[in-house]
Amino acid sequence: MDTTGTLDEALQRLHGSGPERLGRLTNHAPMAVEALAAHGQARAVHRWLDLYAHKLEEFPSAVEPVTEGNWRSALGDPRRAADWIGYFGREIAGQPWQEVLTQWWPRLLPGIHGGSTHPVIRVGHAVRTLLAGESTGPRLAELAHGLGYWAARHHPVTDPTPLPGAGSAAAALDAVAPIAVRDGGFPARLDRVTGLPVWAAGITDPDEARDRLTELVRAATHRYATHGHGEETMLVHAATAPNAVLRTLPALPRALWVPSLRAAWTASAAVTAMYAPDEAVSYAAPGTPTPEEVFERALAHGDEHVIKLTDTALDVGDAPALAAALRAIELSEPLS
Score class of each variant (00 low, 15 high):
D2A: 06
T3M: 04
T3W: 03
T3C: 03
L7H: 07
E9W: 00
L14K: 05
R21Q: 09
T26I: 02
A29G: 05
A32Y: 00
A35P: 01
A37N: 03
H39E: 13
G40C: 12
R43L: 05
H46M: 15
R47C: 00
L49H: 11
D50H: 13
Y52D: 12
A62D: 07
V63I: 14
T67D: 01
R72I: 02
P78Y: 12
F88G: 04
Q95C: 01
Q95V: 02
W97Y: 08
V100N: 08
V100Y: 10
T102W: 01
Q103N: 01
W104T: 09
W104I: 08
W105M: 08
P106F: 06
R107D: 00
R107G: 00
R107S: 04
P110F: 08
G115Q: 04
S116C: 12
S116W: 05
T117A: 11
P119D: 06
P119F: 10
V120C: 15
I121Y: 01
I121C: 02
R128E: 15
L130V: 06
L131W: 08
A132C: 04
E134W: 01
T136G: 11
G137I: 00
L140D: 01
A141R: 15
H145K: 07
G148H: 09
A151R: 04
A151N: 03
H154R: 09
D159H: 11
P160K: 13
T161G: 00
P162R: 13
L163S: 14
L163P: 00
P164G: 04
P164C: 05
G167D: 15
S168D: 04
V176F: 06
I179H: 12
P187I: 09
A188H: 10
L190G: 05
D191L: 14
W199V: 12
I203C: 13
T204S: 15
D205C: 10
P206N: 11
D207Q: 15
R210D: 01
D211C: 10
A220L: 08
H222L: 09
R223I: 00
T226A: 11
G228D: 02
G230S: 07
T240Y: 03
A244R: 08
V245A: 10
R247F: 00
R247K: 10
A255Y: 02
A255F: 01
V258T: 15
P259S: 03
A263E: 08
A267S: 11
A270Y: 10
A273E: 06
M274C: 14
A276H: 11
P277T: 01
V281Y: 05
S282I: 00
Y283H: 10
A285T: 07
E292S: 14
E292K: 12
E293M: 07
E296L: 14
L299F: 05
L299D: 01
A300S: 13
H301Q: 14
G302E: 09
D303Y: 10
D303W: 10
E304C: 00
E304N: 11
V306I: 12
I307N: 02
D311M: 04
D318P: 05
L322E: 02
R327D: 00
I329F: 06
P334W: 04
P334A: 07
S336L: 13
